[in-house]
Amino acid sequence: MSAPAARRVEPVAEVPISVTVNARAVEAVVPARQLLADFLRDDLRLTGTHVGCEQGICGACTINLDGEPVRSCIMLAAQVDGSSITTVEGLASEGLSPLQQAFKDNHGLQCGFCTPGFLMTLATVDPDEYPGTDGIREAISGNLCRCTGYGGILQAVRTAWNRVEDG
């Protein structure tokens, strides 16, 4: 879904926001009702944030907001004024981060649609709080994947977190 563009419809309240996205300062005027996911995807062209349900359930749209994982499909762009956001495009300055590399090496993705959400959830997690493979399951339990059955994802995280012995 995209924000009202050239031809305006009816008076829609607009809100100015300033926000840091992937270490870049962004000033924008957004429609009050625009979803954060749509702002990122349509206005900033950061389409790595995927929308799987628009209902806060699947986790595909997860981004990091001031260091916390949040679902960008159930937030408004207007709410993030003054915040700092990281999306999957900002995870590594070049190439792949160790976690991304572990997903690649362990076949942790198939269609890849859910993958940015998993990566952004895991990016904020302290591994010590999620011991063992059961801990990893807990950590990713708010993200749905329909392709992998989670086997490759668990193996990727075990590798990234140096837990291969659990496998």
Binding site: L46, T47, G48, T49, T87, V88, E89, L91, A92, L96, Q100, F103, K104, L109, G112, T115, P116, L119
Partner: peptide, 9 residues
Amino acid sequence: QDDALLSGR
């Protein structure tokens, strides 16, 4: 395709 998919491209 994994490099592109993993980095949101």
